[in-house]
């Protein structure tokens, strides 16, 4: 499995990670190596098998539509790097 530099940079961008120039090759190498190994799934005898979605057989796990009081705002914001007027503050986002 060949992974190009453009590809790894695109993936890093999707994941919102910066890769330093010197890291690109290392990550690319590891990714290729692991993908080569992971490719074995394409040899597995899986014709006609359904995908497993959810490990156990459970279905229709629902909640009642009832309001439950939660924590107060200060507790919810206690870990915020920056907050103002009860909101999380970030640099200006222009839409």
């Amino acid at each position: 499995m060949q992974v190009s530099k453009e590809e790894i940079l695109h993936i890093a961008k999707l994941a919102n990670l910066n890769l330093k120039e010197e890291e690109v090759d290392t990550y690319m190498g590891h990714l290729e190596e692991i993908l080569n190994f992971a490719n074995i799934v394409n040899k597995a005898p899986i014709d006609g098998l359904e995908e497993t979605i959810g490990v156990n057989e459970a279905y229709n796990v629902f909640r009642k539509d009832e309001i439950i009081e939660s924590l107060n705002r200060d507790e919810l914001l206690q870990n915020a790097p920056e907050a103002q007027e009860g909101m999380f503050k970030i640099p200006k986002v222009i839409n």
Binding site: Q84, E85, M87, F88, K89, I90, P91, K92, V93
Partner: peptide, 11 residues
């Protein structure tokens, strides 16, 4: 929301 004074956005 836009923060009128600090020049940031508020979530």
């Amino acid at each position: 929301n836009h923060d009128e004074f600090g020049g940031g956005s508020l979530v």
